[in-house]
């Protein structure tokens, strides 16, 4: 860990100004990933701006009928919030599938979006990694890539520069729910649909997301429809708890009169960002929910997926997980 100075932010604007003034500065909220990476000498900020005391700690209803999660609400407080468990149980379930109770008590919703990959090579400064040191190469492609990406790995030049995955569970549910990220920055406020917040690696894998330098996440807006009746978050991993996903699926269905009106499927553990295919989801509408149509969508979603050896199993695993998650969502008894 390198040396850094520390200051508590006194206000949102002040925090953004302070952050913009120093290129090597970083915001710190829960700290669960940033300090981890600093101890590994992967993240090397020279100045930390502690934003924990900013007024971004509440969950409030918004005009659209949705819910606004303050960026500094902890993952635990979000998962157990009555509005979330009742209206967005998918989100609650996804959050509780991640990390540990201790980490969820520390980690914030904004911070969850900023989590960096768990790629072994990214974490180990003794090995080349394009995400950590652009241009140094990707060790995972020819290395131990069991936990790595199978989708969205090719850059426009048809080369692969990085096969890291985004590790969040929460973001997979947020992607399915079509949440919107609210940010503020030197150039003012803006909103970013969650689906566009995280990037594919392309030839610039060092960039995880579309945030501009100095921008601060202030909130995550959930749309009015939280799919409370038919949802499932299915996470497959190497042990029963406290492990990152090999593959996860957030499935949400709106089923009326035995027909699917709306369907959302987001995958975790398979790509550099939560993976969605709205075009394929749309093929489910007006269909009766059953294994055959789910299998069709699952196969289609994994079309073009490519394994790199150790992770090739994820292609079949993801297909099966999609089908199971959609079946679980279908059969979940509404109103708990």
């Amino acid at each position: 860990m390198n040396s850094f100075t520390y200051a508590r932010a006194s206000g949102i604007t002040q925090a953004v100004v302070e952050r913009s003034a120093k290129t090597d500065a970083a915001f710190i909220a829960g700290g669960t990933n940033l300090l981890d990476l600093m101890k590994e000498n992967v993240a090397r900020p020279t100045h930390l701006i502690d934003i924990n005391h900013l007024p971004l700690t509440t969950i409030t209803s918004i005009e659209s009928g949705g819910l606004r999660l303050g960026a500094l609400v902890t993952n635990a407080d979000t998962a157990y919030h009555q509005q979330v468990t009742q209206r967005y149980p998918l989100l609650s379930q996804a959050i509780l599938a991640g990390a540990s109770a201790q980490l969820r008590n520390m980690a914030t919703d904004g911070g969850n979006l900023m989590q960096r990959t768990r790629c072994y090579y990214f974490y180990d400064t003794a090995t080349p990694c394009n995400k950590r040191e652009p241009g140094s190469g990707c060790s995972a492609i020819t290395g131990f890539n069991r936990i790595h990406a199978i989708l969205g790995t090719y850059a426009q030049d048809q080369q692969v520069y990085c096969i890291a995955t985004h590790p969040s569970d929460m973001c997979v549910a947020l992607a399915a729910l079509e949440a919107v990220v609210r940010v503020t920055g030197p150039d003012g406020d803006r909103t970013i649909p969650l689906a566009e917040f995280h990037r594919l690696p392309g030839d610039t894998p060092h960039l995880d997301n579309v945030l501009q330098d100095g921008e601060l996440i202030t909130a995550i807006d959930l749309p009015a429809d939280g799919f409370p009746d038919h949802y499932a978050y299915l996470k497959l991993r190497d042990r029963s708890s406290y492990a990152f996903a090999l593959v996860s699926v957030a499935a949400a269905l709106d089923i009326q009169d035995g027909q699917i009106k709306d369907a959302r499927i987001a995958l975790g553990g398979v790509a550099h960002r939560p993976w969605r295919r709205p075009d394929l989801e749309a093929t489910l509408t007006e269909k009766a929910p059953n294994k055959t149509v789910f299998q069709y969508v699952a196969d289609a979603m994994l079309e073009g997926a490519q394994g790199f050896g150790h992770n090739t199993f994820k292609i079949e695993l993801a297909k099966r997980a999609i089908v199971r998650a959609l079946l679980q969502a279908t059969n979940r008894p509404s109103a708990v």
Partner: peptide
């Protein structure tokens, strides 16, 4: 694991100054 304001957290992943 310690309790901060009665909530359990990992003391290794927070700075004392925070």
């Amino acid at each position: 694991t310690v309790l901060v304001n009665n909530k359990r957290i990992n003391a290794c992943l927070t700075l004392a100054i925070m």
